[in-house]
């Protein structure tokens, strides 16, 4: 009955297979200041050094009790790889993308023929390898990356949202370029030991761009990543921010195994809206996980569990100041849940 390793358990849950109980994991970022203090690996250094990144990723398991290890903690390494200007992070804050490198269709060619061996994405793969060597037999090793639509936005800047409308040829070409990178990068993470892939595509929201643009610019690229991961037997989780309720059927059409929904989605409605994918979510990282007590978190967890989610998890990245005992309340509720 209960002889699944955490690794097997999560894989089965994501594939919709029966298990003994829920797995306690977070598909979104796990780093917190308390974990940094406990393990001695701090942001921003832990974003740039493989050993420190692995150490802080490991703390999610050893300090909090998540039944998985996960890296990285931000979604800027991909844009940084292509030379976008980055605003450095701090101990409490992730780095962010502030400069853009691709203005038009001709700019894309300058970036063709890259090698994945340089930059911070290599460090992330190295951290994955460290974690996989240490925990890979028992625990899921979750790799995450920004999705192609949001990467294209990082590369192109704020005009991106207009360009997909006014310059479709460029829009499609840039998304294709980003997708090829995503597929290659995801494969590289898997080669290094990642067994679960999270695609974080925050701005690829049907709520923002509408179903028509979503179908054209997002679904095909997610499908390519999912297909490549399926070939390697790696389940995929898609996280998109905002109220994605109306877009769930479209999100699912890419074939992802699981959809992580944010706190503005009603989890019961989400569970009813999907056919094959499972729903992950969706405790509010600020108003519940960070700012409330373990008792309150347990109450809220129960509501989300009663809604029928496959995995109880934060609705978005965990806030770095979140107390460990609050996260542990969520972990405890997940572990105690039987389907």
């Amino acid at each position: 009955m209960s002889n699944y390793t955490p690794k097997e358990r999560l894989a089965r849950i994501l594939k919709g297979q029966s298990v003994d109980r829920m797995a306690a994991i977070s598909v979104t970022q796990t780093g917190t200041v308390e974990q940094m203090e406990a393990c001695g690996a701090f942001w921003p250094e832990a974003n740039e050094d493989a050993q420190l990144m692995a150490k802080l990723g490991e703390a999610g398991h050893t300090v909090v009790g998540f039944e998985a290890v996960r890296v990285p903690f931000d979604i800027t390494a991909e844009a940084e790889f292509f030379g976008c200007k980055i605003k450095a992070g701090t101990k409490e804050q992730q780095p962010s993308v502030i400069g853009h490198v691709i203005k038009n269709i001709d700019d894309i060619a300058k970036f063709e023929g890259y090698s994945l061996d340089h930059g911070r994405i290599g460090i992330i793969c190295e951290a994955i390898k460290i974690l996989a060597d240490k925990y890979g037999k028992e625990l899921p090793v979750i790799g995450s990356m920004i999705g192609p639509f949001s990467l294209a936005q990082h590369l192109n800047g704020d005009d991106w949202f207009m360009n997909i409308f006014t310059d479709e040829q460029f829009g499609l070409k840039l998304v294709e370029f980003a997708t090829e990178f995503n597929v290659a990068y995801a494969k590289k993470m898997v080669e290094n030991g990642a067994d679960t892939m999270v695609i974080i595509d925050p701005t690829a929201s049907a709520q923002l761009i509408g179903a028509e643009f979503y179908e054209k610019f997002v679904v095909p690229s997610h499908k390519k990543i999912v297909d490549a991961m399926n070939e390697l037997n790696v389940p995929t989780v898609l996280h998109i921010c905002g109220d994605t309720t109306a877009g769930l059927a479209l999100m699912e059409s890419s074939g992802v195994n699981a959809i992580s929904v944010d706190q503005s989605v009603d989890p019961a409605t989400a569970v009813k809206s999907v056919k094959t994918a499972v729903i992950v979510g969706n405790l509010d990282p600020v108003n519940v996980l960070w700012n409330k007590t373990p008792e309150f978190i347990k109450e809220k967890s129960k509501e989300v569990l009663d809604a029928g989610v496959a995995l109880l998890a934060p609705g978005c990245g965990i806030v770095s100041k979140t107390p460990t005992e609050n996260l542990q309340a969520m972990v405890e509720m997940a572990k105690a849940h039987k389907y």
């Binding site: 949202f161 207009m162 409308f165 643009f213």
Partner: peptide, 14 residues
């Protein structure tokens, strides 16, 4: 109303 989206709003405002 959800009949036009962000790309349209930006393009119109441009």
């Amino acid at each position: 109303a959800g009949t036009l989206f962000l790309p349209h709003v930006i393009a119109a405002s441009e």
